[in-house]
């Protein structure tokens, strides 16, 4: 209704013939991605959408820790060469890892891209449980703490001059899960701005960026009801040239004995964090939003809300009783 009204509004009052087009990608960042934009023709939209898709595919391959791609020196290559030799990488991958290292300091170590070994344990248990639910299990504390011995962020050695990355401990690996989509979403914004797109919305499976102009002064974003695959929402955000990122316990998880085991791991317990069902952060940078939504998801509300206030983020918490709490942005 609102959208139709806006389309008519634009045409009646400005006489400008832009219409909204949309598409979706099912093959980037292992998630369901939607893209919508205001363009003057389907052809114009298709061109932009294809360009955006190949940019996202490129970043997806660079940040992949499970697959090799011919001719690409990606994150898996860095991990494979841990304890062996430095790997020279593309600027985007280098920047991502650098941002990850910075995030460690900023979040008191809660966001640690060097936690690959621990996350891998959980990843394997999750894959196993999803493939055959009767085999579902929870890793033992011994197994997890053994893996946690190899999560020192200091093992990641960066060389700005050669843009190379070296992991000095051969059992340590990088998992960029908490930052990769945020970084990619920021690149997507740059891509769209360079293409002259002024009204667009990209939802990279929980990482949203939007561009606004007169044809779409505000994008309305629903904060998902914390259930897998749900398209119901519990809170509405109005976004204007901002990013919104949600971290939730419903995004990647498996069930064991009626309990949810999801993918956001608290470094202190090495278990899935259980203070919230989801946290959504509105910020300028999607990378920052990605980092802080995960960070605040792990922390209890009482601590997280202070940080959100300090940083001037608009944030929405859904707690374990499905109670929704939103703070009002202080402006930043």
């Amino acid at each position: 209704m609102k959208r139709i009204m806006l389309i008519i509004f634009i045409i009646l009052l400005t006489g400008c013939g832009k219409a909204e087009y949309n598409t979706q990608y099912l093959d980037v960042f292992d998630t369901y991605t939607t893209f919508q934009a205001y363009c003057s023709s389907q052809q114009e939209f298709d061109e932009i959408s294809q360009g955006l898709h190949s940019e996202m595919t490129r970043l997806n391959k660079l940040f992949d820790i499970y697959n090799d791609y011919e001719g690409i020196s990606n994150l898996k290559a860095i991990n494979d060469n841990a304890g062996k030799k430095p790997v020279s990488v593309d600027k985007d991958l280098y920047e991502l890892i650098k941002a990850g290292v910075n995030a460690y300091d900023e979040t008191d170590g809660y966001i640690n891209i060097a936690m690959g070994s621990v996350l891998k344990v959980w990843h394997n248990y999750r894959e196993e449980a999803l493939a055959s639910p009767e085999k579902a299990a929870v890793p033992s504390y011994d197994e997890l703490s053994e893996a946690a011995r190899h999560t020192d962020i200091g093992s990641i050695i960066l060389d700005d001059d050669t843009m190379s990355v070296y992991i000095s401990d051969k059992y340590t690996s990088i998992d960029p899960g908490a930052i990769a989509k945020g970084y990619a979403a920021d690149r997507a914004r740059e891509y769209l701005e360079n293409k002259g797109v002024t009204a667009a919305l990209l939802n990279l499976g929980g990482n949203v960026i939007c561009l606004n102009d007169d044809s779409k002064p505000l994008w309305k974003i629903g904060v998902q009801k914390p259930e897998e695959g749900s398209s119901e929402y519990v809170y509405k955000l109005d976004l204007n040239n901002k990013s919104a990122v949600s971290s939730g316990n419903y995004q990647r998880y498996y069930m064991y004995n009626g309990k949810v085991y999801h993918h956001i791991i608290d470094k202190n317990t090495l278990m899935p964090a259980d203070n919230n069902k989801s946290v959504t952060i509105v910020s300028n940078s999607s990378l920052e939003g990605d980092i802080y939504s995960t960070y605040l998801f792990i922390l209890p509300y009482s601590e997280g809300s202070k940080i959100a206030e300090e940083k001037g983020f608009e944030a929405v918490w859904v707690d374990n009783e499905d109670k929704v709490t939103a703070n009002v942005a202080q402006g930043k």
Binding site: M1, I4, M5, I7, I8, I11, L12, A19
Partner: peptide
């Protein structure tokens, strides 16, 4: 008249807007 034109040109369900 404008709503009809918009509906044809944009293929949207502009009739929803009729009461307003």
């Amino acid at each position: 008249g404008q709503i009809i034109a918009v509906s044809f040109m944009l293929n949207v369900y502009a009739y929803m807007y009729l009461p307003v």
